[in-house]
């Protein structure tokens, strides 16, 4: 039982570290956001393994879910602005806002 749990922890932590390094060193914003969502899921599983379901709940809902969705929208907006800086960016911010 203890050895199996130790093996579980080793797999969990190795992958968590690899995910963190991959997310930080990713050059492309949307890939970094995907890796961040995966990192949040993984960290939430670490909290679940530590028998802290409340912290795991908060991490999954806020850290990965809300933050991930917001960062996805932000990365898309940044990519769009970078791609069509002078031609397309007027359609970016809805009806009222002036183009940046």
């Amino acid at each position: 039982m203890t050895q199996l749990l130790l093996l579980f922890d080793v797999v969990l932590l190795t992958t968590l570290l690899a995910l963190a390094v991959a997310a930080v060193t990713s050059p492309e914003p949307r890939r970094a956001v995907m890796l961040f969502i995966a990192f949040g899921l993984w960290l939430s599983m670490v909290w679940a393994r530590l028998r802290a379901p409340d912290v795991a709940l908060a991490e999954a809902a806020i850290g990965a879910g809300l933050g991930g969705a917001l960062m996805l929208a932000a990365a898309r907006r940044a990519a769009k602005r970078e791609a069509g800086d002078s031609t397309e960016s007027a359609g970016d911010s809805g009806a009222g806002g002036p183009p940046a």
């Binding site: 939430s44 679940a48 379901p53 795991a56 709940l57 999954a60 809902a61 990965a64 879910g65």
Partner: peptide, 11 residues
């Protein structure tokens, strides 16, 4: 932990 799994599904 099943509640955490529920949040994962929503996520």
């Amino acid at each position: 932990l099943m509640d955490v799994a529920l949040i994962f599904a929503l996520l």
